[in-house]
């Protein structure tokens, strides 16, 4: 690839103090084999236009901050290579389905609130003292939840989910997958605490198994599968409650 090759980034701008609607701005950045869309944006910020706002941190697909819509698809910009979009232009927009704060930065409070609602941490009926040692787990017990523990909260699945677009109350793919990450953990005893949120109308029952969340996930988590599995858990539970209403909850 010639040293002076360039590619155009067509970036969505929104500066609430000066415009009512998002507008487009184009920047030419060097097209280098090892450059990602995020490197292109950083080049813009450092050399062309310091007013451009976007989130990023680790540059290696771990932190989950740099999710944006690249050519219409939700992606981590740190793992979307510019050469894959050559000759360009590359359209860079904020994540869909979230309110835009400024330029490429979205408001994530809704997701953060939903995340705490499903209690994604290990819940024990009684904490055992530290000197009693760790909680051993077999490799099989770890495999039961490990896939879901790969979630980095990047919210690409929310941007991809057509149900979340129509119904913002939907608890959503990542939050349900993370709830399952703990429900399926042999050390956890909190599944009853998560049940009301997960089996509500805005929980798993809002999902129509479109599967876009699983396609969009950059970490190989299968949120659609997590939701389907919980549907079976919740449905079995309701059936039990219906046939055996005096049983132990």
């Amino acid at each position: 690839m010639p040293e002076n090759d360039r590619i155009t980034l067509r970036v969505a701008r929104y500066r609430p103090e000066q415009e009512m609607e998002p507008t487009w701005q184009s920047y030419e950045v060097p097209l280098r084999k090892e450059w990602t869309v995020l490197d292109g944006l950083n080049h813009v910020k450092d050399h062309l236009d310091g007013t451009l706002s976007y989130r990023w941190s680790c540059r290696m697909g771990i932190c989950g901050s740099c999710g944006m819509t690249v050519n219409g698809e939700p992606q981590l910009t740190c793992s979307a290579f510019l050469t894959d979009f050559a000759p360009g232009p590359v359209r860079v927009e904020p994540l869909a389905n979230f309110p835009v704060v400024r330029d490429l930065v979205v408001e994530i409070d809704d997701f953060m609130n939903k995340l705490t609602e499903v209690k994604p941490w290990i819940i024990r009926a009684e904490d055992k003292p530290l000197d009693e040692g760790e909680f051993p787990q077999t490799p099989e017990e770890m495999d039961a939840y490990k896939q879901y523990s790969m979630c980095i909260n990047c919210m690409l699945c929310y941007a991809a989910c057509p149900v979340y677009a129509l119904d913002p109350d939907f608890v959503g793919p990542a939050a349900i997958a993370l709830a399952q990450r703990y429900n399926l953990d042999s050390r956890d005893e909190g599944s009853a605490d998560r049940r009301d949120v997960l089996s509500s109308a805005a929980g798993v029952w809002a999902c129509t198994l479109v599967g876009e969340c699983t396609t969009a996930c950059p970490k190989g988590v299968d949120p659609a599968g997590a939701i389907q599995r919980y549907k079976l858990t919740a449905a079995t539970r309701s059936l039990k409650d219906l046939l055996w209403p005096w049983g132990q909850r």
Partner: peptide, 16 residues
Amino acid sequence: MARRSPEPLLWLLFSA
């Protein structure tokens, strides 16, 4: 427990 919804039973019929 929240108001009982028929959704789980309808989903069971759907998936069956």
